[in-house]
Design a protein around this nucleic acid. Structure first.
Lengths: 180, 180, 180, 180
DNA sequence: TATGAATGAGCATTCATTCAT
DNA sequence: GATGAATGAATGCTCATTCAT
């Protein structure tokens, strides 16, 4: 039940109730347990969905040197269209601190994200659109950290504004904007 | 009871039990309620402690142009010596999405953090240690986002490594390292 | 659960425990809460039962001039066969002093009782079995007060005796006995 | 602490808290327990006070044939000036059903009340102000029941009105009013 | 497959009582 | 005498899970 996904985004692990999940799709709690023997199993499914959903956005789907920028744009759009995804990801990232299973998944996704961005930077360096002196590893680490800070820990009101500022500066430093 | 603080760091809001908190300091639950009439009151006290503890680290305590670097170093040390603080801050940041009271506090701290860093950047620009073309606002937004991503959403194992990479790159771009 | 009804009669509001109620019918407390979301809801149901049970006895079921006497006899029987009903009614009457909702219900039942008796007196006056000089309103007020004093505030041991005396005198004054 | 008396009248046994009692006289709960080792002991003291207060009003303080009427008037005044007394008496009368100690006290007071009224009737019969055919025992039982119904189980709003009606009818039947 | 009903374990909170000072 | 602090035993209520149908 991916309604659990929505409720997890809305209320967090604290506040996630099987009865509410069942109620959201108008089935009995017992029926929910028929498909997911335990709450944890349901959460596992939700986690799987969230991460696969997230990883999908990581694959560089554009085609030229602006691939890195395209990645940022993709995230921006995702933040607009699927805000629950980030809410869930934040929830999972935090839980990773207490749950080794979760930690493993988060770690893996993190590395994948890092690798993706590092690859994009390298390609950009090859075709000259990004300074060759930049260490792809370090830059990727910074970018991932920034994106996590920006998307996974929203500060509501100022969110859009700060988000814009942060990404703008990032693109500027990377030389992805005309101004650079 | 600031043992609640430790337990919040360790288990999150999900999993924070008054009985455990009382047990941690070997007092009766009723005694806990003698000091904090309700769990929420206790949490409020914990939140107050966490934020005041955090804000303390924001004040630029150094004296010259390396102030910004000093800030980073301060956080690094804090992350080493008081990891619970960041765990709690992450928990609170996430809860802010669902709790307006919390959101207000988080927002305020966020702005204070932003203002502090912006100020540090401006001073550094005045004495020439940072490029005058840099927009202090945008750069501060990026820095705060990065720090949040790095400290509030740890990725355990790779934490130290990634953290190092991200901060190194940040300092490099800001021209805070010899190499720049 | 109308076992709550029995326990309310037995122990009063003070001493009415959900666990005991559940235990009385050998179900889990959670099961009790499955049917009655809150203790208050359960009490409401009990109150409803008690009052409907009580009102049933108010309707004049006989047919001639001895209707009023029939009413007294009915109460006498009820006091013998369903003593809990009066215990509960007493409890509710007392609670009415502190609970406006309860007060409204008690007030209404009271008025209904008064009206019933007043009607019976009037009919008896029409067919001449009761003195026409008697004010139906005042007499009804006295009768209701007496019945409440007799049935709702029992004095255990002497109960039957005193009850008998009081009712006998009432009937005598009303001219419902041969002797009159 | 006779503040317990007031609180018992106000909130009933259900809702009577030692902390509130102590708070009402601005002393510590522990201090309350210094004087009354247990809540029950305190209640006993309250009961003693209430009954002695009540019995005081039973003694015929007038002097001639209108003694019985004087008794009614006394109660009327008491109901106006000390409504808590009746609230407490009601509470105690109800508790008597569950507490043998209380039952004994209530029973005794009841008998004393009955005896007082019976005596008043007899005297009135001797000086001819009340019909000699009236059975003093039965009449006393009726009167006590009525007074209990009227004073111990108030029906708020209509209280004064119904109370007046009931007492008026009682006096009329007894021949205590001119009209008779 | 689906569900109404049931339950054990637990949770925050309350309350009379105790105790050291 | 008086009190702040402490506590055991409840108390109403919740929740994931189970079970008979």
């Amino acid at each position: 039940m991916l309604a659990a996904y929505r409720l997890l985004a809305e209320r967090g692990f604290e506040g996630l109730r099987t009865r509410d999940i069942a109620g959201a799709v108008k089935i009995n709690v017992a029926t929910l347990h028929y498909y997911f023997p335990t709450k944890e199993a349901l959460v596992r499914a939700v986690v799987g969905h969230a991460f696969s959903r997230f990883r999908t956005t990581l694959v560089p789907s554009g085609r030229t040197t602006t691939l890195l920028k395209a990645h940022f744009d993709g995230l921006r759009r995702l933040g607009r269209e699927e805000p629950e995804l980030f809410a869930v990801m934040g929830e999972l990232a935090l839980r990773a601190a207490r749950d080794e299973t979760m930690a493993a998944i988060v770690r893996e996704t993190d590395q994948q994200w890092h690798a993706t961005i590092r690859g994009l930077i390298r390609r950009a360096q090859q075709d000259g659109s990004i300074d060759r002196d930049l260490d792809p590893n370090d830059a990727a680490a910074l970018i991932v950290a920034t994106l996590k800070g920006v998307y996974l820990l929203p500060v509501e009101a100022s969110r859009q504004e700060r988000l814009g500022q942060a990404l703008r500066q990032l693109e500027r430093w990377l030389g992805l904007t005309k101004r650079a």
